[in-house]
């Protein structure tokens, strides 16, 4: 009961956030200079033709009206029609979203597992060469821009060594480099907090108490310590998701995967409002969903958070 109410309350609280997200998404585009119709028709278009096309896409309406129309359509699952491709936005997105999700999740998976393992090792062997090595490699990868790392990887492993294909998604092997690019870039964001949180938890009284009772050290780390760092790590996961998506948008363009990233980049250049709005909205909603998920998972990990569900 309490649990159900907590979930419900938390869900209701996302509604204003989602509305805010749609508003910002809409305004950012419509307030930036550039006209999709002019871009589409080219420099020699007549004013009449421009006016006709603008009316066709509803761009002649006042902004509030445009916003409300868009919002109403989205509520019905209609994201509009692309100005550039002249196809429904939902179609364009559903064709490409799988690729982006695949890249985002595999990048996230590498960064979380690698980061957690390195973070734990660094904490267990604090101030050893291993600890310093973990710090060094984390700083190394995080200091390199993603697109550049992608290009270097492509040059070494694709062009020189020819271990992997240099473009496109053609099976598992072609997934390795893009996922690794994102994974290594993001790994520091999990390794560093993991080390810090782990060091804090390992100093807690209950760790010493567990050891005093005869629990094996490995068990102490896995059962008593690791579960206690889960809450901050889940927070980190939710916080980094937007960055991982942003990273995969860029990396995917470098590797010519043709996912949401290239769709977004091309649509921004063409001021293809419906597509850009649609893509941004999907990304924003997935971030909102990730935060919601994190909030709900906290209470599974930490019994102290359940109390928030309501009065006793």
């Amino acid at each position: 009961m309490k649990k159900g109410r907590y979930v419900l309350k938390r869900l209701v609280r996302t509604i204003p956030i989602v509305i805010g997200v749609t508003l910002v998404t809409f305004l950012i585009l419509h307030l930036t200079p550039g006209d999709p119709v002019r871009i589409m028709l080219g420099p020699y278009a007549t004013p009449e033709n421009i006016a006709i096309l603008r009316a066709q896409y509803g761009l002649d309406q006042p902004l509030p009206v445009q916003y409300l129309t868009w919002l109403g359509n989205i509520a019905r699952g209609d994201f509009g029609t692309s100005i550039r491709y002249n196809r429904p936005v939902t179609e364009l997105i559903s064709d490409r979203i799988g690729i982006t999700v695949l890249l985002t999740l595999s990048g996230l998976f590498i960064s979380v597992t690698l980061g957690s393992i390195l973070g734990i090792l660094a904490a267990l062997k604090q101030n050893s060469w291993l600890d310093y090595l973990c710090t060094f490699q984390a700083m190394f990868w995080i200091s390199i821009p993603g697109f550049w790392l992608a290009i270097i990887f492509l040059y070494i492993f694709g062009l020189q060594l020819r271990w992997v294909p240099i473009a496109g998604l053609t099976g598992f092997v072609s997934l390795i480099l893009p996922a690794l690019t994102i994974g290594l870039q993001e790994e520091a964001w999990f390794a560093r907090p993991m080390r810090a949180e782990m060091l804090g938890v390992l100093n807690e009284g209950y760790i010493k108490a567990a050891r005093a009772k005869g629990v094996r050290y490995f068990q102490v780390v896995v059962k008593h310590a690791l579960r206690n760092v889960m809450v901050p790590m889940i927070t980190m996961l939710a916080l980094r998701l937007p960055w991982v998506i942003a990273g995969s948008v860029v990396v995917e363009v470098v590797f010519a995967w043709g996912g949401m990233g290239s769709l977004l980049v091309n649509s921004v250049l063409a001021r293809d409002y419906p597509v850009v709005q649609g893509v941004l909205l999907i990304i924003a909603l997935s971030v909102v969903a990730a935060n919601l998920f994190a909030d709900l998972v906290y209470s599974l990990v930490d019994p102290r958070i359940r109390v928030e569900g309501g009065k006793k």
Binding site: E204, G205, Y206, K208, A209, A210, N228, D302
Partner: peptide, 9 residues
């Protein structure tokens, strides 16, 4: 410190 000697989770 009994407060910190039991694992909260």
């Amino acid at each position: 410190d009994p407060g910190s000697s039991l694992n909260p989770l």
